[in-house]
Design a protein around this nucleic acid. Structure first.
Lengths: 363, 363
DNA sequence: GCCCACTATCGAAACGATGCGATTCGCATC
DNA sequence: GATGCGAATCGCATCGTTTCGATAGTGGGC
């Protein structure tokens, strides 16, 4: 039996046909032994399973099965940037946790994919090559839009968490605008008039210096991320004269530097609305470094409710139902897979007054 | 054109054959347009792609492609318990982060699966139905052993992070034993003789009361989790007379309660070795509650290096290269997929002296 | 102008399972 | 012992690609 060794796999796998042959039944009958539908004698089934065990057959090949059925049992979860970075982001993780809870329930596999627009081609091809029954875009911005056409062509249902409205994407949204408006009104009711906003970086990966100080509503339409844009707009609706500065990155340090830029002005704001809790913590640091006491000298607010451990303070912020929105997204995937057409939802946020906001210092 | 609506999918998908027909080529040629091997005129390829665009063909069906090629481009990542819980576990996340970094590099999809032995059937069937090219068991204990036979039968390469040695599983291990031994010797060199160990819960999900106080080496062989067992054995080799108590769960509270049981004895230990940092923090709390000052009245050590924010203290602990072991696991997956047969590795741990250990109080 | 060596294209056979329709079997009934 | 009927089993087409071997076409060398 001299046989040329095949250079690659040599993976002579056992197939259902082999099992059938050994059990002396047709492959269709052998298949029956593994399905729940169709009728088969308990005796033959036992014989088939015994044969399978004998030659080490581990059950039907999932790929072949998917090909016939048109379903893979896999849901793609697409995060921005890298999977690694998503694992370090508390907001993403809290959402994931809810999403996973719901998907676990559905008995589907969860395929994690990352996408960044720069290396768009590569990750788009990766997604295109994956046998997914549905996809969830996690905290989506516009960077995912390049992926939509091919998903639509394949009739793959899509669920988006945050992000722009796009045909075919069922959206689980958070009522950002009114959340931010509530915060702004809270600050206004306290008596503040000079307001600064530390806004989230519009860059995805880069880390750099903060942007310039600009009017709150400068070139709003050029900001492609809807979430960022709407939060700014909400502030503008309450404080048309507020100014903003964009953080250079997503870390705490970037928030501190950006806030510092606002505080070092000749006539600094008496309240700083940060666009998320991480930036707010950075802002608190910037204040501490400059000897400002919060809230006596400066009011600081956040946005998120990501439960960042906070040295004994309670941040005045707006809490997003992060886990809940993940759950809802998972539930929608379930409905879509079942052939339904769920409508998108907008989840409310909850204002939570902490001890970082108070009346402005007397002039 | 009255046509009966098919009750189910109706998902009339466009296939390569349709594209070929429109472009007036054979399907084999149409396939060539999407492959990198084989020769095809640039003109024909363009014609084919144009046809594809015209009828909305999004590229070859991944499932069919996998069936032919025998590869799915998917690596399964299996965590214990639920995916959700894994997202909340800092040790798992740090490892994941390294693993994802390596897998991103390989351009493979990462399929998250959970497995708990109780509902073993269900999750085993889920895994069996997934088209994975390789699997990684994340921080594996024995609960995954039921999954091995079928993976072996399918010739699916396996990588384990922690866990018992099993045929066919390439292991990325951490030198637990010597790490714990280093800690024990550190404590011995400080002069301690009465030692207590707060050990990790051997239960997976449940939460309950702590176990009884037992000799350090009682029934060691009945503890199925190798990691837990070896850490105990390492302590026993230095302190044969130490006692241990098992935490009732994985949370901080469980650690506090278990440590309390040790501290409330008539003649309490002067040093408590906790089996991980979370339990150590719980132990610190138990000490604080009882008015014990650390390290003056009690020495506390941890294990992990999961960087738990610690109110200004630095825990005496042993740091595991968590991110690194994830990276290594990913690298091994790469080697295995390329047909290699990497050998397992044992990563060293690093002792880090903090300010929670000191000489025992004078009697 | 003929033949050869390529190259681009094609046809058909897999890949491993499933499901429909047809066939056979077992068994009770007349 | 023939007949009828449901249940168990079988054969074959099929899912959408890829790939191998075969065929047609192209151009160059003489």
């Amino acid at each position: 039996m001299v046989k040329v060794m095949r250079s690659s796999p040599a993976r002579t796998s056992v197939t259902l046909a082999d099992v059938a042959a050994l059990a002396k039944v047709s492959t269709s009958t052998a298949s029956l032994a593994y399905r729940r539908t169709g009728s088969i004698t308990e005796r033959t089934r036992a014989r088939i399973l015994a044969a399978a065990a004998e030659i080490g057959y581990a059950g039907p090949n999932p790929t072949a099965r998917s090909l016939k059925s048109g379903r893979s049992g896999i849901v793609g979860i697409i995060v921005a940037g890298t999977v690694r970075r998503a694992f370090q982001n508390p907001v993403a993780m809290a959402t994931m946790s809810g999403l996973s809870e719901a998907l676990d329930e559905l008995d589907v596999g969860q395929l994690l994919l990352s996408h960044r627009s720069e290396s768009g081609d590569r990750s788009a091809r990766l997604l295109d090559g994956m046998p997914v029954d549905a996809v969830v875009f996690l905290t989506r911005g516009e960077e995912f839009d390049g992926l939509l056409p091919s998903m639509r062509a394949r009739h793959i249902p899509m669920v988006g968490v945050e992000g722009p409205h796009e045909e075919g994407v069922t959206l689980v949204d958070i009522d950002d605008a009114s959340g931010m408006a509530v915060l702004a009104r809270h600050v206004r009711d306290l008596g503040h008039t000079r307001i600064g906003v530390v806004m989230r970086s519009t860059r995805i990966d880069a880390n750099g210096p903060p942007g310039p100080i600009e009017p709150i509503d400068a070139n709003l339409e050029t900001i492609s991320n809807r979430t960022i844009r709407e939060r700014l707009r909400a502030v503008a609706s309450v404080f048309p004269d507020a100014v903003r500065v964009e953080a250079g990155g997503r870390e705490l340090d970037s928030g501190e530097i950006a806030a510092g830029r606002l505080l070092d002005q000749a006539s600094p704001p008496t309240a700083i609305l940060a666009q998320n809790d991480m930036l707010a913590v950075g802002t608190l640091r910037a204040a501490a470094v400059r000897g400002l006491e919060v809230p006596r000298d400066l009011t600081v607010t956040g946005f998120d409710g990501a439960h960042i451990p906070l040295l004994g303070r309670r941040l005045t912020t707006v809490e997003q139902p992060l886990h809940e929105r993940g759950l809802q997204a998972g539930r929608m995937v379930g409905e879509l897979l079942a052939g339904g057409a769920p409508s998108g939802i907008v989840l409310p946020v909850v204002f939570r007054e902490g001890d970082t906001s108070g009346p402005p210092p007397r002039a």
